[in-house]
């Protein structure tokens, strides 16, 4: 056991955590604003490329970070224009954006960086490391309490949640709901850009095709598991990170890599199943507890399910393509 758990493992957990957590925080904002953003994967991948390209041409990792944030926001702007301004199906646009990101980054890595598949160079500036972690890791930790305060205490966070819960109610009070949704999607683009920068300049210092490898999708699930709350999202992201880090370690001990790389996705799916089942029974029990005898008077309105997992099912179920 001691071979598996030690300080180095903790450090690799933190490294695995940062990109997923940053992307998931972006997804959380979109969820709160009522936009189902499944483009996180693509935003992050473009962020990876832009970070490497920025650092390479700018000669400084921080220029890479800034480029990544801008690139992530540009991708997000496409989603936000199509789905919020035009009212297009966010799921379809999100899927297409993920595929666009794969094609675009592979295209650019060849035309701009002149490499095929993977770009790596000793002269490529990576992020500085303090106490074995990159500054973006510390930033991601700081963002969790900031998100708590933002959502719970500030006027904008308060209104953002209203926009997501009932856009028509928010609109009737004069809130420009689209502006909030645009802001949330753009912020998610910036956060995914940071996630990409961490992945490509922090965890490793290189770009390779499709290097996000589904982490953006995991971030989507992490938001569902965390019920779109910052702390819950952190815990869910940690679950993924621990599995990934332990998997790497076990791989070092001779377990076939096929199983260790797939493990985080299996665990994430299993957690989603468990949470869905649990939430289902809880909702039923809660409803029975408060309303069991026939409602008196006008009858109590049953609580509206607001958790993202349920909502995602709904949005997915109602999604029709024509």
């Amino acid at each position: 056991m001691t071979e598996i758990f030690d300080l180095a493992l903790l450090e690799s957990v933190m490294r695995a955590l940062t990109p997923v957590l940053l992307a998931a925080l972006g997804g959380l904002l979109c969820e709160k604003a009522g936009v189902f953003n499944i483009g996180l994967e693509g935003f992050m991948l473009v962020g990876c490329f832009a970070a490497v390209a920025g650092s390479w041409f700018g000669g400084d990792a921080w220029i890479g970070v800034i480029t990544a944030v801008i690139a992530g926001m540009l991708m997000a702007a496409i989603l936000s224009f199509a789905s919020v301004t035009l009212g297009a199906d966010a799921i379809i646009v999100g899927i297409a954006l993920n595929l666009l990101a794969v094609g675009l980054t592979s295209f650019l890595v060849r035309t701009v960086l002149g490499a095929q598949g993977t770009f790596q160079d000793p002269a490529l500036d990576g992020l500085p490391i303090f106490l074995s972690q990159s500054p973006l890791t510390y930033l991601s930790w700081a963002l969790v309490p900031i998100f708590v305060v933002f959502l719970r205490r500030t006027v904008w966070g308060f209104r953002l949640q209203g926009v997501g819960e009932s856009p028509s109610a928010a609109r009737s009070l004069g809130v420009n709901t689209k502006r909030y949704q645009h802001a949330a999607v753009l912020a998610s683009g910036a956060l995914c850009g940071l996630a990409g920068a961490q992945l490509a300049l922090g965890n490793v210092v290189l770009f390779s095709e499709n290097m996000t490898a589904g982490r953006g999708w995991v971030a989507v699930v992490v938001v569902m598991l965390g019920q779109a709350a910052p702390i819950g999202t952190l815990v869910a992201a940690l679950l993924f990170a621990v599995t990934e880090a332990v998997g790497f370690r076990l791989q070092g001990l001779g377990l076939p890599s096929q199983f260790t790389t797939a493990a985080p996705y299996v665990i994430t799916l299993a957690a989603l199943v468990l949470v869905s089942v649990r939430r289902r029974t809880l909702t039923v029990r809660r409803a029975r507890g408060t309303n069991s005898p026939a409602p008196s008077g006008g009858g109590a309105t049953p609580p509206v399910p607001t958790d993202p997992a349920t909502r995602a099912t709904v949005s997915q179920g109602e999604n029709h393509v024509s």
């Binding site: 035009l86 009212g87 297009a88 199906d89 379809i92 646009v93 297409a96 794969v102 094609g103 024509s322």
Partner: peptide, 24 residues
């Protein structure tokens, strides 16, 4: 010497624009 990934880009862009056009 234009990378073949251009094709994937075109495909994805077609879908994004189409989704927007349908919504419009």
């Amino acid at each position: 010497f234009v990378p073949r990934e251009l094709s994937s880009i075109l495909q994805a862009v077609i879908i994004i624009v189409l989704a927007g056009a349908i919504a419009l």
